[in-house]
Simulated scan of single mutants.
Amino acid sequence: MALNSDLLRVFLAVVDTGSMSAAAELLGQTASGVSRGLSRLEEQLGVTLLVRTTRRMELTEEGHVFQERARGIVGAMDEAEECMRVRHQQPSGILRVDASAPVMLHCVVPHLADFYERYQQIRLELTSNDRIVDLVEHRTDIALRAGPLGDSSLHARHLKTSRLHIVASPQYIARRGRPRTVAALDKHVLLGFTQPDTLNTWPLRHAQGNSYAARPTLAASSGETLRGMALAGVGIACLSEFMLRRDLDAGRLIPVLDTLDNGYRQPLHAVYYRNTQLARRIGCFLDFLSERI
């Protein structure tokens, strides 16, 4: 039995998007064509790979096993094809990149002029979301994500780590005083994230443990909003060093409880689907970003 690579791509598209119609849109096919392709693959294998529930397609046990093998086969074929096809070509086309506002402003935007100078045929489309986005749903090629990654079928590349700093403005310190212990934070205005709660875990050693669960007095969805509030003297915030470096160097923000840092470093990853048309562009962008940050 010889499996058709197109059928493997149909199967993976249905798995990744969760429906026949979404897979059809992703592949540029009709929903009926996708359905026939999936049925043909299941007939060739002699097993049921997907079952339909009221909300989406769900993998059977055989489907889970086959998915891993199929991704490996398609990925290897794509890589071989891409290597030959673009070996002597300049990468070109649209590359859609998504990141939170702080990552976009501090890690991407400062380097865009140099990137364009090097890769003038790649057209970047940038979006900012403070929540994790579904790459297929939002038509995103690469997402830059700060913090630990959950389990995912996406490819991931580690770009850097960044220390978290507890900071306040000189005006706030002059008005409210500088906390000398972790327990003293309970008497201060704390600035934190609306969600997820893990972003309000501050890397501070104290008698009761190795981290501090901050209960924000004021909360925002964006780290850039929290930085602005800290600069305005509203309260104390915990933010990544890549956002704060210039503020700390200029004295606009002052470290708080710096000696109690527990050593945690926040990772920054790029996550993406690998496919033939995008692999070259993705590689160029990630290699360039790795150099710069």
Rank of each mutant, 00 (worst) to 15 (best):
G177T: 09
S92H: 14
P179D: 07
L144F: 13
A146N: 08
H138L: 05
L149R: 07
V189W: 07
R163H: 05
V136K: 13
R123M: 07
D114C: 02
D197T: 11
H188Y: 12
S153N: 09
R139W: 02
R118W: 00
D151M: 09
K160H: 02
D197P: 02
I173E: 04
R176E: 14
T198P: 00
R123N: 07
A146H: 01
D130E: 15
R123Q: 12
Q120T: 09
A101H: 11
T194E: 15
M104D: 03
Q120I: 00
L95K: 13
E117S: 14
D134I: 04
L112P: 03
L154N: 04
A143T: 05
G192Y: 02
E137I: 02
D197I: 10
T198K: 14
N129L: 01
D114Y: 01
P148H: 13
I173P: 08
I122D: 03
V103I: 15
R118H: 04
H188T: 11
E125T: 10
E82G: 15
R176F: 14
D134W: 02
R145G: 01
V133C: 03
C107V: 06
A174D: 09
C107T: 08
G93N: 10
V108M: 09
D98M: 09
R96M: 02
A183P: 00
G177M: 05
P148N: 09
Q90G: 00
F115T: 08
A101R: 15
L191V: 06
H155C: 10
R145W: 00
L95P: 06
G177A: 08
R139I: 00
L105M: 13
H138M: 10
V182H: 07
H165R: 12
R157G: 00
R123T: 11
T181I: 05
S92L: 05
V136A: 13
T140D: 01
N129C: 07
D141T: 03
V189L: 11
T127C: 01
G150K: 12
F115K: 10
V182F: 08
Q121A: 12
P102F: 07
D130R: 04
Y172E: 05
H138A: 12
A184H: 03
C107I: 01
S100C: 11
V133E: 08
V86Q: 12
D98W: 01
R139A: 14
T161V: 12
P148T: 11
G150P: 04
R139E: 12
R96E: 07
D134H: 10
Y172T: 03
V189Y: 06
A183R: 15
P110C: 09
H88M: 09
R139L: 08
I132W: 01
E82I: 04
P148G: 02
F115A: 09
R96A: 13
L159H: 05
A168C: 08
R175S: 14
H188Q: 15
K160L: 15
V167K: 11
S100A: 15
Q90N: 11
S169V: 07
L164R: 13
L144H: 04
Q195L: 07
Y119H: 15
L154E: 06
R85S: 13
A184P: 00
I166W: 05
L185Y: 03
L144Q: 06
K187A: 14
S169M: 08
I122Y: 07
V136S: 12
L124N: 03
